[in-house]
Each structure stands twice: as C-alpha cells, then as structure tokens.
Amino acid sequence: MRILNICAYTWQAGGPPKIIFDHTQVVLRYGHQVDILSPFTPGEKPYPIPEGANLILCKRTPLISRFFREFSVELYQYLQKHIHEYDVIHCHGLWHFGTLAPFMLDRKIAKVITIHGVLDRWVYAHNNWKKELMNSLAQKAYLRRADLVQINNTDEQEDILRYLGQPHPNVVVIPNGVKTSDFAQLPPKGTFRQKFNIPANKQLVLFMSRLNVKKGLDLLLPGFRDYVQKYPNTILALAGSDDGYQATTQQFIDQHRLSDSIRLVGMLTGDDKKAALADADVFTLPSYSEGFSMAVLEAMAAGTPALVSDRVGFGDTIQQYEAAGLLSSLTPEAVTAGLEKLLGDELLRSQVAQNATGMVKKLYDIDVVAKQLLDEYTKIVQKK
C-alpha cells in the first residue's frame, strides 16, 4: 500500500507528528510506502522523518492562514495532481484544510480520520465560530464519508455521536502507542539537573507538554504555589513550547516570586527529554482534555511516577492498573493534595511507576497498536 498522512508535521504541533513517526516506522517494516503532507510556515522546524518515508512541505497561504492556520493552496494543488497515487489518505484532526481537501477532490481513495480528541466538550467550546464555519463547509459531511474513523478511547465514540447526531458506521478504537525500547536505557541520573542547575537535594516535579491552558496550567501553577509554601524543597520544571500561555505563566511566577521554585526550560527533545524523565520525582499533566496523551505514555514508559487528570485519554485504564496518581478533581487544591500524596511517599511512587511500565508494555507498545491500524487500512482498501 501507499499511504499519505496529512498533518502539520512540525515540533509545534504537539503529539500527532510523534504518533505518525512511530507508526510509520512500523508500517515501513511491513514493506509499505508512506508520505507525509504538511502545511508549514517558513521558520517552523519540521519533525524528524523516518528513514524511508517522504515529507512534502506546502507553504501556508498568507492572509487566509492567519485565520485558518493550516490553509494551503500548495497542499490542494499537490493533492489535485497526486491523490490517485495513494491507496489510503489518513487525515489527522478536524477543522483543518488538510482534512477537508481530500474529500473535496476524490470519492474513490480510502480515507481515514483520526479525531485526536478534538471533539471533546472542552476543546469544542473553544474557537467555536471557526468550527461552525468549517462545519458549514462540509466538515460533518466529510466525517460521515470517512471509510474509517480512528478514535483513541471509548469516550470519543460519544463525542462523535454528539457531533454528528448519529453513530458513525466505521469507527475503530486504537490507542496511541509508544516505542518502549526507546526508554529501556535513560541518560544517567543527574544529567538534566546539572544542565538546568537544579540541586540534587530538591524534589523535581516535571510538566512536559505545550504551554496551553488546555493542559491545566491554570490548576498546576496555583496548586504548586500552595504546595511549595509548605514544602519549599521542591522545584517545578515546565518543559514545552509556548502555545498561548507562556506570558501568563511568567506573569504568575513573577507575581508570586516563584522564580527559584518554577523553571521554564523550553521544549525538550531526544536525550534532554529522556534525561528530564529520568531525574523527575513526579511527572504531572492536570489536563482538561487529551485525545490520548503521548507525554503521559512516554513518562510511564520511562518509569517516572505520574500525577494526572482522568482526561488524558486513558484514565479508566490508568485507574484499573493503579498506574498513576489521579487527581480527585480539576482544581488547584486537588493538585496540591496529589503532590503531597506522591512526593511524600517513595514506596507509592515506586509502585505506581512499576504498574505503569507493565501496563504500557502490555497494552500500548507501538508494534502492537501500529499493526492494528495497518490491518484496518488493509480492510478498507479491500472494500474499495
């Protein structure tokens, strides 16, 4: 098969590029071809490309892309010329031009849409005017036409029902996966602390995601402030690119004189990311909404004890395996209490980390979940 993924394939895009990268590595091993079609703005940094795959960059169209960021005439022109060379077109997310264009151009090629959590009530309520406009441009109709809709958890099935007003006939639940072998050997302990001047005798809480209010930073910041007032021997490292909340975060740090306790360390990749996970006493993501959090999966694969909300995409499974501390509610007080419980009990941290790594290896290893998706591709192509 020849497969085309359509996604903003940049570091700034968050989890989907990582998901595509890992899936593509597996798909290539089975002898298939993979292209990645991505809108981009000059100056953006593309995500790494798996060896053997092909990345096609199409410039976003000025003016229009100020309001609809993924709009690209070049992308449309590429599809016009090449769409019939593919067996499967896989679109990532909704309300992007790249999710509309293939349906505008063709009815014969098998098309897949991965929701990536964007129909969650919290997400859908934001920038709603843009979404309603895209719906009027046939986003709902195109979603109904998809040969396969991949969702990461059963909650998304209810989201689709609420959005479409009826069940979609071609839905499959396939979670995100992680390459567990990547985390089998981590950098030596202390590497991250030394690089960012974090004392070895202080407990380290790590937040690693885009700096966006959706990620629960408005809960984490006051929750950690209250925690550190009681337990000053603690540092919070915020690792991630700015996605609209860095200025607010910095203002909070300055206002509450927390510069010695909260560090903005920027986006971490490669060994720096692994070193941070190795050194952290607790990883936290008190998110309001995630399709299926890659950051949480990677922390668990690395054996870092986690404190998360039940909205990270697999909260029920985390609870079943006792694989993390789950926030009792989405409040700063719950963050404070969760930190007190985990950071105050080394045995508990060890147990939840052990439970988490076992769960990830069993359920979410990339070789398992990528093969599931590949099998679904084969089914829809055969139907076509």
Rank of each mutant, 00 (worst) to 15 (best):
L4H: 03
C7F: 00
C7Q: 00
C7E: 07
T10M: 12
T10P: 04
W11I: 05
P16A: 05
T24H: 02
V26E: 04
V26G: 09
V34C: 02
V34W: 09
P46W: 00
I49T: 10
A53N: 06
L57A: 05
R60Y: 04
R69T: 03
L75Y: 06
Q80T: 13
D87H: 15
D87Q: 15
V88L: 10
I89D: 05
I89N: 09
H90S: 01
C91Y: 08
H92I: 03
L94A: 02
G98S: 11
L100P: 08
A101C: 11
M104D: 13
D106H: 04
D106T: 12
K108F: 14
I109L: 12
A110N: 07
V112A: 03
T114S: 13
H116Y: 00
L119F: 02
V123F: 01
A125C: 10
H126S: 04
W129F: 13
K131R: 13
K131M: 06
K131L: 10
S136Y: 08
L143D: 01
R145M: 14
D147H: 12
I151E: 02
N153C: 15
N153P: 05
D155V: 04
Q157G: 10
L161V: 11
L161G: 03
L161E: 09
Y163K: 11
L164F: 13
L164T: 11
G165A: 14
G165Y: 14
P169I: 09
L186C: 04
R193A: 08
N197P: 00
P199S: 14
P199W: 09
N201F: 06
K202C: 08
K202W: 01
F207M: 07
F207W: 02
F207A: 02
M208N: 00
R210F: 05
N212Q: 15
K215Q: 01
L217K: 00
D218N: 15
L221K: 06
G223D: 03
Y227K: 02
Y227C: 01
V228P: 04
P232Y: 08
N233H: 13
I235D: 04
I235C: 06
A239M: 10
G240E: 02
Y245Q: 03
Q250D: 12
I253P: 07
Q255K: 15
D260N: 09
S261C: 15
M267L: 15
M267Q: 05
L268I: 12
G270N: 01
K273N: 03
A276P: 02
D279P: 04
A280N: 09
V282K: 00
T284V: 06
Y288A: 00
S289W: 09
V296Q: 00
A302T: 10
V308N: 01
G313I: 00
T317G: 07
A324Y: 05
G325Y: 01
L327D: 11
S328M: 06
S329C: 01
E333G: 11
T336D: 09
T336H: 04
E340K: 11
L343C: 10
G344Q: 12
D345V: 08
S350R: 15
V352L: 01
V360P: 00
K361G: 00
V368L: 14
V368I: 15
A370G: 06
K371W: 14
D375A: 14
E376W: 08
Y377V: 10
